[in-house]
Amino acid sequence: MSINTAREGHTYPSVDYQVGSEAIREFAVAVKNQHPSHHQAEAAQALGHRDIIAPPSFAVVVSQKAEAEVVKDPEVGIDFSRVVHADERFTHHSPITAGDNLTAATTLERIRIMGAGAMVTTSTEIHTEDGTRRATVTSSLLVRADDEEEN
C-alpha cells in the first residue's frame, strides 16, 4: 500500500465536456429517469429551460473524467482495481442543459488512511464556458488494502 497524502489540496488540470442532447437522452434511459424534460426539448422549454436538461446524477459523467486525473496521478498511488465507490454528492447550482460547454476541475480534498487502505475524497467544480456554475460533485473512493495486508 503506497497511498501518499502529500497531494491533499491539489487541484488537477480541468477537462472540457460538451453536453449533447443524445448523451442526456441515453443517460436518462440508462438510469430509467422518465421525466419528459430529459427527453423532449418542448417539455423542458415549457418549464423554462433552453433545451433538455440532465438528470440529477448526469454530472457524474463529467466529474469522473476530471477525477480520473487523481486516480492516475502516480504521486497519489491509487490502485484502481482496488477502488470501491463509498459515497457521492451532487450540489446543483443551475441545471446542466443540452448545448452546454462545460469545464470541470477536481481538487483532492482529503486522504484518510484507514489501516492499510484509504478513503480518498475529491471535489469537482463544473461550470460553463462563460463561468456559470452548474454543479459541485463530491465523491469518496475507498481504496482497499492489498490481500496480503488484510487480516
Binding site: 429517469n33 421525466h35 424534460s37 430529459h38 418549464l47 429551460h49 436538461i53 438528470p55 440529477p56 446524477s57 459515497d87 457521492e88 454528492r89 451532487f90 450540489t91 446543483h92 443551475s94 441545471p95 463530491t138
Partner: peptide, 8 residues
C-alpha cells in the same frame, strides 16, 4: 428535475 438542487 431542476428543482432537485442537492442529491447525496
Amino acid at each position: 428535475p431542476a428543482a432537485v438542487t442537492d442529491y447525496q
